[in-house]
Design a protein around this nucleic acid. Sequence first.
RNA 1: GCCGGGGUAGCUCAACGGUAGAGCAAUCGCUUCGUAAGCGAUAGGUUGAGGGUUCGAAUCCCUUCCCCGGCUCCA
Length: 596
Amino acid sequence: MPATDIVHVTDPNSQEALDALRHSCAHLMAQAVQELFPGTKITIGPAIENGFYYDFDSPHRFSEADFLPIEKRMLQIAEGNHPFVGKEVSYEESKAYWSGRGENYKVELLEGFKDQKLTHYTHSTFTDLCRGGHTPSTKAIRHFKLLSVAGAYWRGDEKNAMLQRIYATAWPAKDQLSAHLKMLEEAKKRDHRKIGPALDLFSIQELAGPGLIFWHPKGGRVRLIMEDWLRAEALKRGYDMVYTPHIANADLWHTSGHTSFYRQNMFGEIEVEKADYMLKPMNCPFHILIYRSSLRSYKDLPLRYAELGTVYRYERSGVLHGLMRVRGFTQDDAHIFCTPDQIESEVSGCVDFALEVFKTYGFEKYAMEVSTWDPEKSGDYSGEAAEWERATSALESVLNRRGIPYKLCKGEAAFYGPKIDMKLIDAIGRPWQLSTVQFDFNLPKKFDLEFVGNDGERHRPLMVHRALYGSVERFFGILVEHYAGAFPLWLAPVQVKILTLTDAQIGLAEELKKTFEAAGLRVELDARPEKIGHKIRETALEKVPYMVLLGPKDVESGTLAVRLRDGRQKNGVTAEEFLRRLTEEVSTKKTASSWE
RNA sequence: GCCGGGGUAGCUCAACGGUAGAGCAAUCGCUUCGUAAGCGAUAGGUUGAGGGUUCGAAUCCCUUCCCCGGCUCCA
């Protein structure tokens, strides 16, 4: 028995040990499912982040109602303390075994493993074709839970059969399982699709169509602040703001190549005066047209065109998801045109800007990936080997110089150039694709872009695409979830709410509101004849950062009774102090109340 | 787009072949109150839409739209 394929636990939380536990648990689940639902065929069941899944082909339609019986049976099997036993088998032997059992998916898998060493792993009465990585016995498996059932194509290909996938989670210790389940619950509570409409931030209207976002006044306020900040920051960094149309003649999209490689995602055509128009799925060709509108000198470069550009993409109905995946969205897009010797400083500027975005919005963790081509398949890509090498090394060296760790993904680049992708890790540990800095060797060629060098000759400029929020909609959705709707003061749609105790304070409350507004704060007044506890509850549910309670005692003392969003109370605060603290908190963009 | 699950009052849900209901929200009155829900009354619905079966449909069937969990794709 190849002992190396059994994971003897030294650190139960090492990735290897977690994967072994989860993959072993997948075997148990497959056994339980086959026992309980005869006729079910097995396919694959890998460990994934935080758990595992197993894909089945079964006459039975799995539902959550099946989870409890499956879990019970799994526990019984686990308690049997069956060892996982690995056995090397020949191709013929394995094929005979799986064909004999009618497991045609396993037989199909075998075809791909013909030249490899094959192993079967057995525990209890269950055997799987598997390369190993198991716990010594089933006894290690105790803390798991089935989570959901979903469709999945065999081998991820939509031309293949649709299988039923059961997702589950498994952990070495009970408290880790409950912590994970709690995290899932927390994620559900933070879901921007729930919080957004509840806080009256945005909506999606069935009458208008799926994947199209309506920003309500409160969401609109936050967006305005996000956009204003970004624009100001871009101007500081030498960008020019441009504006371009939402629609263009199909000829432009033929020139850019979008009608050949992106047609299935485009809205169009709209026939006007015998010409076809299409909605823009990307801003790049428009910025290129601005570049091309006059002859450029090397002295003009780099040119950095930025736009909050709204694009429309036809996304298949099943992929839409709240604000995260939509059909109309606004990119904080920019295109930088530069000379080859400027690329490193330009990429560096983009990375700086992205880091500033992360810091400003309170994200401490992020993950970076550099995606480049697969030189073996250079025919699939636009651009020369030297360009790819130079650009990729610029991307890497910028990150290296800052000591930022990244994952190098070979063959993951788009056909037109290498890129850095930046993923945010939110407050509860989930990653989100956000910023991207991307070279484009294709469009400058398609549009025959040029600049005149100091040698008097014409040269082709390099082009870099760059988005930081990525999509304003998606970034906003991430913010809603990251803060669970409790925006930091500088972003909060309503920053202060004044609550009167009795009608006698209304006059003073209105004056106070004017004073606060004059200081630039966004203020609301609740002067209804409701009990103070009632008003506090409603304001708390609206996640307003600061409440000012105004009753007879405060009028008498001439001070304010302040209640923070976290429930802390600060009584006897003067209006001056309150304003000083809040304006300070806004200008420093603190992500939590600065009130100690 | 595909597989599965759903759509009932503004929200959360009940009724599952026999008169569509509750809590919260809303509106109107009363209450003038000190740190997360005062009291009462009223109003609110072509049960997503269209068609069918039936004496009778929210409930069963068909079509369609939208939403949810995933797959594929992606900002």
